[in-house]
């Protein structure tokens, strides 16, 4: 809800542009649900600034998910990463670190290497969509930083992820 402070100061043009470019079909991982504000809190005609990090994180979605033991970019992830690439191409003052994560069902070292594969897969997709390689770095956290803490597939599915963390770096 704290994004609403920002929402109300947006220009209509930007908000409309954002809606046109990317409808509110996020990656399906649930992150940032409701933040687009279609009928949320009574501010129905506004949306996040499409060039804001909040828009990137919540509307586009900063996460993509992977199947067990895999680092293949699936269709849902492809949609998200394409939008991430567009955003990064439109906002060249930002850089990003892509974090690769694994679920807890694996040994520590292997999961580090698997997280690195996932981060690299997401990075490679962004680069293929025009983002300059030198604006992106990858890091693996293996199974060290789960997002969901239960020990069932429901949580594991959320933890097998690559997260694009943007920051206002020097850019290229």
């Amino acid at each position: 809800m704290k994004t609403f402070t920002k929402v109300v100061v947006l220009t209509t043009t930007l908000a409309l542009a954002a809606c046109a470019k990317s409808p509110f079909d996020r990656s399906g991982n649930g992150a940032g649900a409701g933040a687009g504000g279609l009928d949320n809190g009574g501010i129905s005609s506004s949306a996040l600034d499409a060039n804001s990090p909040a828009y990137f994180n919540q509307t586009i979605g900063d996460k993509v998910l992977f199947a067990v033991d895999q680092s293949t970019i699936n269709d849902t992830a492809r949609t998200t990463l394409s939008q991430q690439a567009n955003w990064l191409n439109n906002n060249t003052t930002y850089t990003a670190i892509i974090e690769g994560h694994a679920d807890e069902q694996g040994t520590r070292e292997y999961n580090l290497a698997l997280g690195a594969r996932r981060a690299a897969a997401a990075r490679d997709y962004l680069v293929a969509n025009g983002v300059a390689d030198n604006r992106l770095r990858t890091v693996t956290f293996g199974k060290e930083r789960p997002l969901a803490v239960c020990s069932t597939e429901e949580c594991y599915a959320k933890n097998r992820r690559a997260v694009t963390v943007i920051s206002a770096g020097v850019g290229s």
Binding site: S71, A116, A120, T140
Partner: peptide, 9 residues
């Protein structure tokens, strides 16, 4: 040790 370059360890 293991060293990761790109996606390869």
């Amino acid at each position: 040790f293991s060293l990761t370059t790109g996606s390869n360890t």
